[in-house]
Amino acid sequence: MHGVKRVKQTPQALDAKKQRECAKLAEYLALTKDIISRKKSRDWSREALHLTSRLLQINPEFYTVWNYRRNIFLHGIFPNSTLEGINELLSDDLSTTMAALKAHPKVYWLWNHRRWCLENIPSGPISDDGSDSGGWKKSTWDRELFVVEKMLDADPRNFHAWDYRRYVLASMTTPRPKKSELAYTARKIEANISNFSAWHQRSKVITSLWDGNRIPLAKSRKEEFELLRNAMYTDPNDQSVWIYHRWLVGSGADKELLESEIAAIQELLDEQPDSKWCMESIVHYKRLLLRNHLEHVDTQKLSAECQELLEQLQRIDPWRRRRYEGIAQEMTG
């Protein structure tokens, strides 16, 4: 840090530090060797479980140890436990992985183990009328959605958390309304239009709403284009917005829609003459017109306009020059 005087460590201090690091490494290697040996001998004891806890605290990416831990539960501990005991054990593991995720939010194996825990929570308890109320599972799924929302509050672009959120939503005993999830993605996008994961989630949710005829298709598409228009003007260089725009156009790319969106993007390009994404998108949509509506467009005019834009793109985006040249050659060939 600026303004903080560095204190030079003595040779003795450096040597002591090195010895501590060597001791930690030796302990880690010995622990690893012990656990791998126990795994090979099919040791399903609670002692072995405790050792895996110690090792995974040091290295949460050691997937072999996660697999061994699950086998200890399945073959050694669950068979001798009550349903309440199994639920308590898995709840403890959910708490442990939650603490680990705060430090390592993008370690896949932590998210993966949470899935396994949730899938192995026993149903129950049984209600007074003798029916299975969903009990632990229901309350756990509700809590899990709260957990993943907290994770996304901390890092709205954590794609592991978004993928896990989709898993939780699909597994909940009482499904969350799709419109609620659509509103959730809108809030995340409003907070940060660059949140590609939120746009991706939105595409999945809105597609399911369209497929189920739960929202008017034409009205919904119009609203999505309005949302995109605001995002484009906020940051015309944001890739996430343009990728979602192409997906939305692709969901109903008739001639009228293509021409309407080309005109709208051209207005933005007139204000932002060096916008790479505006140019690329106009070229993309004009090529769709040429490909899908050849008999109803001025092919010579559209081709010339695309070539002009591709030449501009080669100048402002030299790193992708070859790509633009290839598109231009493809159009003339």
Rank of each mutant, 00 (worst) to 15 (best):
D92L: 11
S131E: 11
L89R: 03
P216A: 06
Q300L: 12
S131R: 12
T140D: 04
T332A: 14
I206M: 02
R187D: 14
A231K: 01
A13P: 06
K204S: 12
R187G: 03
Y68R: 05
K222P: 08
I72N: 07
Q312I: 07
T96F: 15
G333I: 07
D43G: 08
V4M: 15
A48P: 01
A264H: 05
Y28W: 03
C306M: 02
I206D: 08
E267F: 08
R114G: 02
Q272C: 12
E119K: 12
I327K: 06
A99E: 13
H104S: 13
L89G: 01
E47Q: 08
L56W: 07
F78L: 00
T174L: 10
K18T: 11
T185S: 09
D43V: 09
S303Q: 14
Q239A: 10
I243W: 08
S275R: 06
V4L: 12
D34K: 15
I36K: 13
R20Q: 15
A23Y: 04
R315G: 00
D211G: 12
T140E: 12
I215D: 01
L209G: 05
L118F: 10
K179W: 09
T140G: 05
I121D: 03
I35E: 08
V241M: 05
C278D: 00
L29A: 05
E149S: 15
S251F: 07
S133Q: 11
R114T: 09
N237Q: 12
I189D: 03
S53I: 03
T185V: 10
D235N: 13
A264C: 06
I327L: 13
L25I: 09
E88V: 09
F225P: 01
K102W: 06
G134H: 08
E267Y: 00
S203E: 04
R287W: 06
K219A: 13
M232Q: 05
A13K: 14
K179L: 15
A218Q: 13
Q272R: 14
S123H: 14
F159I: 01
H50A: 15
I77E: 10
L258M: 07
H296R: 15
W141C: 08
L258F: 05
V147W: 11
T332L: 13
R202A: 06
L294A: 15
L55Y: 13
P318N: 07
L309C: 01
P318A: 03
D254R: 02
S91H: 11
A231M: 05
A198S: 01
D274F: 10
L288D: 11
S240T: 05
C306E: 04
P177M: 08
A183H: 09
P318V: 05
G130Q: 04
T96I: 14
S251Q: 15
I243P: 03
S303H: 10
W319G: 12
G76I: 03
E226T: 11
K40P: 02
P125Q: 09
W242N: 00
E84T: 02
A191H: 09
A218C: 02
H2C: 02
M172L: 11
M172A: 04
N213M: 06
F146I: 14
I243A: 10
